[in-house]
Nucleic acid binder design. Structure first.
Length: 800
RNA sequence: GAGGGUAUGGCGGAAUAGGUAGACGCAAGGGAUUUAAAAUCCCUUGGGGGAAACCUCGUAAGGGUUCGAUUCCCUUUACCCUCACCA
């Protein structure tokens, strides 16, 4: 008999929702557990089968923890600002709000049909003015503390759509939408000073429990390096070129300098530059190149000597030439480098191309072939000669500081966060530009600054946001002087709303604060945050930055938002490729639920494989999951009154409780389920099982398959609801079998097996192993040199 | 180019501290039940040899450490992810 999952699942979902079974309790005396999944962007395609993988994994933990007695807050919300809704709006002339609402309703229906134990009373929506009021409030605080500022930045600009593009909208150097050329255009942008927090964002990683690859990726992204900033005077001028280097020890080998095409020196000393015309041409060429081209064409280094200018190497006092080349980036370091061709491969290639002098200053390589970047002894380096690289580095920094040539310097790859978008569907930036007072913050009392209605969602001709077209909205008065002023028309990026949503969950309906101090104290930090690896360097870093800022101004109680971070692997199509419409390998969760049921879907997603790795979706695997649940359902016919059926079963049950408890807490539901399958198989081998046997199975299976287990619990007349029952305990002593079979190896190869008591001493085990009649023939004349006994595992007889 | 990851049967994957490789599932084959099929239940299933006992090979390739290596170290290969000349 198969169970009627459709009616059963619907029944329990309605009950859980109407009774608020899984809503967090207001009682702050209870121990709390706050697990979090990355709230979804409600796309028009509906839920992807990848979403439930992460949601179910933490749902399993959440459900188990409730049975352990924790007050659990497992919330859900919608990260609903963003490009797809806006693009849809442009195409179909529908307000993004309408399409967003529809999509949210669909997502909500799908998630509820999966029986995830979310607290549906705490939904947040980033596009709701009552929510983004506080996003704007946080921005004002950042502005107040000088962490938000405006600066000229190069952006990707589509020459045909006349619109600024995000990096992900630029595909192979052309606009994703129309296929026309994308250039770099300078535009004034809002920036957030995340670099101010670079050091703490690295060092505080030591205080949190993140999986190692997340920490590594964040550290690499922030990219801390230590070296020196050294000033090279420009001969016959007051100017100097400041460079950043991690290798001040190689300064005697610096035979020329290179500056980026955007370097201000070219402007400052333009009248001294003899070939300024050609330099200008080079600058124009470099400007045209997109990031894509600059990296794609990296085979041959281009560049040009600046005629008429020479720099002075402060160590040697020699005059060296200055080149301009686009392989030097204005955005990293100082936009200028000292080139040491003997010991840096890029400089080496450039020197070969332009026939420049290459000097060896560190021995150990062969610089006639390639640059040598390894360790060695300093040569041709004045007072550094004979030192090791490490000592020379320190001595050189001392020397530079002493003589006033520069300073020791820590550098980061991390750039400030470009925070404005010339788009409609985002939070308006609550800043007013006054003709007299400059940039003025809106009064907090006037928040939210509601996103106004517009006629069309296309950006303006000059690439500014659609909001710029609304004269009534843009023209306003200055909050400071009352004079004429204009509103900021840029909006915030999608990352804004997601940088603090987890705080709002603790107190989502609060009208006076983004969350009450009391609720924040109780619920934060998040105990466990699971999300995709693709968010490691953006969302995860941004939200840590905002949280640290909020901590600094005293409005959140912890320096870090997330105590623990794990990451799930992707679910790929049956053919092992990423699921996509064009590949035709998309699996629709609705169909799986319709044809197999939510419990089967949940069970399959948990059983599919290692949670952290990518896996392929296999339809037959879903059938297997369904088959297992049918077997559990049919077991009810075999249940008889009483406690444990047999001692053998009792041991297996205790082993299973132990394994399942450990596995659920460690995202290893796949092996927990395998163990439960073993238990069920064993139950089928018995003539009958008892109520106690069956209850344990239902309790252990409940976090993964909550509907069928609730139903069976009720049908068997067990007291209360299974979700109110406490998690089963095991007795370590009862997990151990009396007699164990262990292997006997001769020189590392398994030859035969013996049965011994699990309590037997090493001596007893060895004796038993040696008693076997096969031993003599197997060692055949050799001498036993050593016997290694590992209790409960094996015996290894070493013979020669 | 840099950083990170992965590699185990026909397939998805197990192996918690270096200790019996292949748990569990899928697929396949056989049997029971059935008028028949589906469903269900039971059994077999890494390769080679052998009637069997058992032998032998086997965790991407090669080497090392060890009584013992899927696990640790070195070299190589392939694939995946992130970043893109980071000075």
């Amino acid at each position: 008999m198969r169970y009627n999952y459709k009616n059963i699942e619907k029944k329990w979902q309605e009950k859980w929702l109407s009774e608020g079974t899984f809503f967090a309790k207001e009682n702050h005396e209870l121990p709390k557990f706050y697990p979090l999944i990355e709230f979804p962007y409600p796309s028009g395609q509906g839920l992807h089968v990848g979403h439930p993988r992460s949601y179910t994994a933490l749902d399993v933990v959440a459900r188990k923890r409730r049975m352990d007695g924790y007050n659990v807050l497992y919330p859900i919300g919608w990260d609903a600002f963003g490009l797809p809704a806006e693009n849809y709006a442009i195409k179909h002339k529908v307000h993004p709000k309408i399409i967003t609402e529809q999509n949210i309703a669909n997502f909500r229906r799908q998630l509820q049909a999966l029986g995830i134990s979310f607290d549906w009373s705490r939904e947040v929506n980033t596009t709701d003015p009552e929510y983004y009021k506080w996003t704007q409030w946080i921005f004002l605080k950042l502005f107040e503390k000088d962490l938000a500022y405006k600066a000229n930045m190069d952006i990707n600009f589509c020459t045909s759509c006349k619109v600024g593009l995000a990096n992900e909208e630029v595909v192979n150097g052309v606009c994703e939408r129309c296929g026309s050329e994308v250039i770099r255009k300078e535009k004034e942008q809002w920036m957030l000073k995340i670099t101010e927090y670079a050091e703490r964002l690295i060092s505080d990683l030591d205080t949190v429990d993140y999986i190692e690859r997340v920490k590594i990726q964040q550290r690499n992204w922030i990219g801390k390096s230590s070296g020196a900033e050294i000033s090279f005077p420009v001969a016959n001028s007051d100017e100097a070129l400041s460079v950043y280097t991690t290798r001040p020890d190689t300064i005697y080998g610096a035979t020329y300098m290179v500056i980026s095409p955007e370097h201000p020196l070219l402007n400052n000393l333009h009248d001294k530059i003899e070939n300024i015309g050609m330099i200008h041409e080079y600058q124009v060429e470099a400007k045209k190149k997109s990031d894509f081209e600059r990296t794609e064409l990296n085979k041959d280094k281009t560049g040009m000597k600046i005629e008429g200018l020479m720099a002075v190497n402060p160590a040697t006092q020699n005059e060296i030439p200055i080149y301009v080349s686009d392989y030097v980036m204005m955005s990293y370091g100082t936009g200028a480098i000292m080139a040491v061709p003997g010991h840096d491969q890029r400089d080496y290639d450039f020197a070969k191309e332009f026939n420049l002098e290459i000097i060896e200053v560190i021995s150990g390589g062969d610089i006639s072939v390639e640059a040598y970047s390894g360790d060695g002894i300093l040569v041709n380096s004045g007072f550094l000669n004979g030192m090791k690289v490490k000592d020379a580095k320190e001595k050189m920094i001392e020397f530079i500081v002493d003589k006033g040539f520069g300073n020791k310097k820590i550098n980061y790859k991390l750039r400030d966060w470009v925070f404005s978008r010339q788009r409609y569907w985002g939070e308006p930036i609550p800043i007013i530009n006054c003709e007299k007072c400059g940039m003025v913050a809106m009064d907090e009392k006037d928040l939210p600054l509601v996103l106004p209605e517009v006629e069309s969602y296309e950006p303006a001709e000059d690439g500014s946001s659609p909001l710029a077209k609304l004269d009534d909205w843009v023209n306003t008065t200055c909050p400071k002087c009352g004079g004429h002023a204009r509103r900021e028309t840029d909006t915030m990026p999608q990352w804004a709303g997601s940088s603090w949503y987890f705080l709002r969950y603790t107190d989502p309906h609060n009208n006076d604060e983004f969350a009450s101090k009391e609720n924040l104290e109780y619920w934060t930090p998040i105990d466990w945050y699971n999300g995709g690896m693709e968010h490691t360097t953006l969302h995860l870093l941004y939200s840590r930055f905002w949280h640290k800022f909020l901590f600094d101004i005293g409005v959140v109680p912890t320096a870090e938002p997330y105590a623990k971070r794990t990451s799930h692997g992707m679910i790929l199509g049956e053919n092992g490729e990423k699921m996509s419409k064009s590949r035709g390998n998309v699996v629709n969760p609705d169909e799986i639920i319709e044809n197999f049921g939510a419990d089967t879907m949940r069970l399959y997603e948990m059983f599919i494989g290692d949670f952290e790795k990518s896996v392929s979706w296999i339809e037959n695997g879903v059938k297997g999951a369904k088959r297992f649940l049918d077997r559990v359902w049919n077991l009810k016919e075999r249940v008889q009154k009483g406690s444990y059926y047999s001692e053998e079963i009792e041991i297996l049950i205790h082993q299973t409780i132990k394994k399942v408890t450990y596995d659920y807490e460690n995202l290893k539901a796949n092996t927990a389920i395998a163990q439960l399958m073993t238990l069920v198989n064993e139950y089928y081998r018995q003539e009958f099982i008892t109520d106690d046997d069956f209850k344990i199975l239902l309790l252990l299976l409940n976090p993964v398959a909550p509907h069928i287990t609730e139903e069976l619990w009720q049908e068997k007349g067990y007291s209360g609801y299974i979700s109110d029952h406490s998690w089963p305990k095991y007795d370590e002593k009862k997990t151990i079998e009396d007699i164990v079979e262990i292997a006997v190896q001769i020189n590392g190869k398994v030859r035969y097996k013996i049965e011994v008591s699990s309590k037997a001493s090493k001596e007893e085990i060895e004796k038993k192993a040696r008693e076997n009649e096969r031993l003599e023939e197997l060692i055949d004349g050799m001498k036993v040199v050593k016997v290694i006994v590992i209790p409960n595992r094996l015996v290894n007889v070493v013979a020669k």
